Computed example of a mutant assay.
Amino acid sequence: MYQFFVDDAQIGREFVTITGEDVNHIKNVLRMKAGEKIRISNQQGRDYYCEISEVTDTFVQADILNEDAASTELPSKIYLFQGIPKGDRMETVIEKAVELGVYEIIPVAMKYCVVKLDAKKEAAKVARWQKQAEAAAKQSKRSIIPKIHPVMSYKEAVEYAMQCDVRLVPYENERGMQGTREALSTIKSGTSVSVMIGPEGGFAEDEITQVKDSMQVISLGKRILRTDTAGIAVMSMLMLELEME
C-alpha cells in the first residue's frame, strides 16, 4: 500500500484531496485507479486508510475508510546529530535513519569533517536531503516526515542536544559494551534521545571533553564503524529497545 503526506487543510470529514507533485506520481507513474487503497498521514501523527475515488490531472480524491490507522512512530523522539560525511554517505544515513524511526536529523560541522559546505551549497544540500527524507518516510510508511535541519556548528549542536532527556555520544576510544547496555536500558517510552555521531576523522579530543560531563559517552563494540554505519547501528539498538509491539 502506497503512502502519501498531506496538510490538515486537505483532510475533510469524509475524504482527502491530494494535490501537487503526488498527483502526477499517482496518475502517471503508479497508474493508480479509483478503488485502489492508499495510506495518508498529516505529518503530525494522524493516519488514515483511504480508497481512491477520483483521479484527475490536478488532484486525487480518496475516501476515508479508517481514521485510526496504526501509528508507525517510535514511542520516543530520536534526534540524530551527524558529523557531515563526504560523498553520498549523508544520503545513506538519512534514508536508513528515517526507515528506522528517527525524528530529526541534524548535520553537524565538526573539526575533522572532510567536507566544508559554503552557504549556497548548504541550502541546496539540505533541500535535497529533506526530499530524500520524505521519500524514505513514504517508503517505510512513517506517520511523519523527519525534519532535516540546516547545518549546525558543534557548539550549536551540543546546545540543541542538551534539550533531550538522554544524550548519547558513541566514541571509538570508549571501551566496553556494559555502559552502552545500561544507557539504553534507561530509555523509556516518551523519553527524548540525542545521538551525536562523529565524522570520518572521528571526534577531536576537545569535542569529547566538552560533552563528557553532560552526555553519556558509549561504545559501539570492538570494531571501528564508518560514520554512516554508526548512526544506523545506534538507531537499530534504540528501535529494539523501544518498540515493544
Score class of each variant (00 low, 15 high):
residue 49 Y to H: 12
residue 42 N to Q: 13
residue 121 K to Q: 10
residue 178 Q to S: 15
residue 50 C to Q: 07
residue 183 A to S: 07
residue 143 S to V: 01
residue 76 S to R: 03
residue 115 V to W: 03
residue 179 G to C: 08
residue 194 S to T: 10
residue 47 D to E: 15
residue 211 V to A: 02
residue 15 F to T: 07
residue 90 M to P: 08
residue 100 L to V: 05
residue 127 A to N: 13
residue 20 G to K: 09
residue 151 V to S: 03
residue 227 T to R: 04
residue 239 M to F: 14
residue 79 Y to K: 00
residue 46 R to F: 09
residue 15 F to M: 10
residue 205 E to F: 00
residue 111 K to F: 10
residue 30 L to R: 08
residue 72 T to P: 06
residue 128 R to D: 08
residue 243 E to A: 08
residue 218 I to E: 03
residue 194 S to P: 14
residue 115 V to Q: 05
residue 74 L to S: 03
residue 65 L to T: 13
residue 222 K to H: 10
residue 216 Q to G: 13
residue 44 Q to K: 10
residue 26 I to Y: 03
residue 121 K to I: 02
residue 75 P to F: 13
residue 243 E to W: 15
residue 188 K to H: 07
residue 128 R to C: 07
residue 7 D to P: 09
residue 221 G to H: 02
residue 7 D to V: 15
residue 190 G to W: 12
residue 34 A to H: 08
residue 173 N to M: 06
residue 145 I to D: 07
residue 66 N to H: 11
residue 8 D to S: 13
residue 75 P to C: 12
residue 171 Y to L: 12
residue 78 I to Y: 12
residue 84 I to W: 01
residue 108 V to G: 00
residue 142 R to L: 03
residue 125 K to S: 02
residue 180 T to Y: 00
residue 241 E to K: 14
residue 96 K to N: 04
residue 177 M to A: 01
residue 34 A to I: 11
residue 28 N to A: 09
residue 160 Y to N: 14
residue 169 V to G: 05
residue 102 V to S: 06
residue 159 E to S: 15
residue 233 A to F: 00
residue 140 S to V: 11
residue 8 D to T: 14
residue 177 M to N: 02
residue 215 M to D: 11
residue 206 D to K: 00
residue 175 R to M: 09
residue 128 R to F: 02
residue 108 V to E: 01
residue 175 R to S: 13
residue 72 T to A: 15
residue 113 C to L: 06
residue 187 I to C: 06
residue 217 V to D: 03
residue 120 K to H: 14
residue 42 N to Y: 01
residue 2 Y to S: 14
residue 68 D to Q: 15
residue 216 Q to C: 12
residue 75 P to K: 11
residue 234 V to P: 09
residue 40 I to P: 01
residue 226 R to Y: 03
residue 78 I to P: 10
residue 227 T to A: 05
residue 5 F to Y: 05
residue 78 I to F: 09
residue 15 F to E: 12
residue 68 D to Y: 14
residue 176 G to N: 03
residue 180 T to C: 04
residue 65 L to E: 13
residue 51 E to C: 07
residue 155 K to D: 15
residue 233 A to E: 00
residue 38 I to M: 05
residue 138 K to W: 04
residue 1 M to L: 04
residue 120 K to R: 14
residue 150 P to T: 00
residue 183 A to G: 04
residue 33 K to C: 10
residue 76 S to W: 12
residue 36 E to I: 01
residue 160 Y to I: 10
residue 136 A to C: 04
residue 102 V to P: 05
residue 212 K to Q: 15
residue 213 D to H: 08
residue 21 E to G: 12
residue 53 S to L: 10
residue 154 Y to Q: 05
residue 218 I to Y: 00
residue 181 R to W: 13
residue 122 E to C: 09
residue 112 Y to R: 09
residue 156 E to M: 09
residue 40 I to E: 00
residue 61 Q to R: 15
residue 199 P to Y: 01
residue 181 R to H: 09
residue 9 A to G: 05
residue 95 E to T: 13
residue 81 F to E: 02
residue 74 L to E: 01
residue 50 C to T: 03
residue 140 S to N: 13
